[in-house]
Nucleic acid binder design. Structure first.
Lengths: 244, 244
DNA sequence: GACGAACTATGCCGTTCGGCCTAGCCCGCC
DNA sequence: GGCGGGCTAGGCCGAACGGCATAGTTCGTC
């Protein structure tokens, strides 16, 4: 089915932000006709080798961009949440698979019409381009984290990001619901599933977090967790020149 | 000084390819006026916090995109070679520094005029956008390599990439001249300098490479090196559907 | 050509993370 | 509600990589 996505859709309102591929301001997308598709958990949106004729925006649920090597090693490049745009990368290399983590919905916009619109609508063009640019910044952070941080720092980074991105802001203690399972977290962070599990336990023992269930994390010591996560962050904003 | 870059410049002819940030087809750039700047080894093109008012294309030499964390850990996101475009990412986060590895020259194109041209020249727009998209693909590969490969696989991957990208094609044995030093290689691969050094030695002992000097690598066993490097590659092309 | 500084190689050892295995838990299905 | 499969936790051990120290090499400078 084809419909115009409404900017006023409540699902979008507070879900934009720098987590996944990009966050092309959702209102830019809303004027375009797009096809909504639903996926069950684990289902592929784009498979390796598929013609990448579409860009996608997540409407509901969480999706993952996965690369699997020929000998079975797996790396998750990004998790996409509602408002995130994805499908920018596979176009060049066809090496990523986009899958639903849980049940979810994406809006598909054909590349042709996207391109056409980019060429006639400078604002839209800028928005998409900014999306790609922002995705690159996220890739830099992600790569630095994988290349230069310990297991505990990686997990702390992941949890604080999830909290900022998808946590319910008002709850006390701050709580993160993990939609993905341990293997996905491991593959996102460049660790093994055992190490992720052990690191959760270790954080629990240190009093940083509580695990009321395996998929729910309560952050008991935000400062401590952030100190761990911040290790691979840049200098604080106050120390930098802010430029428009 | 300002001048139009000539497509016919011999330095560009065979140097395009997927190594650094992107390879916006150089001819697209050649019609734009751009400012050429020269840098000595180690000099900064863009520093953290600088206003990112320009896009750059490498004309001569090799440049690196570096992220340094507050506690001094260092990750190199990409090496840029002649024909590569860079400066796409810092715009969003200001967390990357672009530096000259050896002496080199870049062409700077102001973002304003680049944007203006993107809006009126669809072909140019596509080229720049493709550049960003390709950079994302490279980031995926790089990240997978860092997250899921052993030290030896990483170095093999690096050497084969350099050979394909910057090696003199005709030489026997295939030879790679390293313009960067061990620390840069380590920071690019997410390793320590000692591990890089030891891994070079190990490859030498296994007869994969020879090191006539510390900065020159001869590839003695291409097949063996590629087997190592290929571990984190995708399935062979023959097994995939090729799509335009 | 001699000096010095920076870069590289390498031995030794410690730590961290991975790999294998089993037990426990949760959840879904019948 | 009971059964079964998949996911998670955690013990045990080993391998790989990191960190430190030192020796050797290269390169630039005077």
């Amino acid at each position: 089915m084809t419909l115009a996505i409404q900017t006023s859709d409540a699902a979008f309102q507070h879900l934009r932000g720098p987590f996944g591929m990009s966050d092309v301001t959702h209102s830019r997308f809303s004027h375009s006709d797009a096809t909504l598709s639903h996926y069950a958990a684990g289902e592929e949106v784009v498979g390796e080798g598929d013609p990448t004729d579409y860009f996608y925006m997540v409407v509901k649920g969480v999706f993952r961009a996965v690369k699997v090597t020929r000998d079975g090693r797996r790396q998750i490049f990004a998790f996409y949440m509602p408002g995130d745009m994805c499908g920018l990368e596979p176009g060049a290399s066809y090496d990523l698979t986009i899958e639903a983590v849980g049940a979810g919905t994406v809006a598909a916009l054909s590349r042709l019409s996207c391109r056409a619109r980019m060429n006639r609508d400078p604002e839209f063009n800028s928005a998409v381009f900014e999306g790609a640019t922002r995705a690159l910044s996220l890739a830099v952070d992600h790569m630095t984290m994988i290349g230069r941080s310990s297991a505990e720092e990686r997990l702390a980074w992941f949890l604080t990001m999830l909290r900022d991105r998808a946590g319910a802001p008002g709850r006390h203690p701050p709580t993160v619901d993990l939609v993905m399972q341990r293997q996905d977290i491991a593959d996102y962070l460049g660790l093994t599933i055992e190490t992720v599990s052990r690191t959760f336990t270790h954080m629990k023992e240190r009093g940083l977090i509580a695990l009321p269930s395996t998929r729910r994390v309560q952050i008991l010591n935000s400062a401590g967790l952030e100190r761990l996560a911040a290790a691979d962050r840049d200098a604080p904003v106050s120390a930098r020149t802010i430029c428009a």
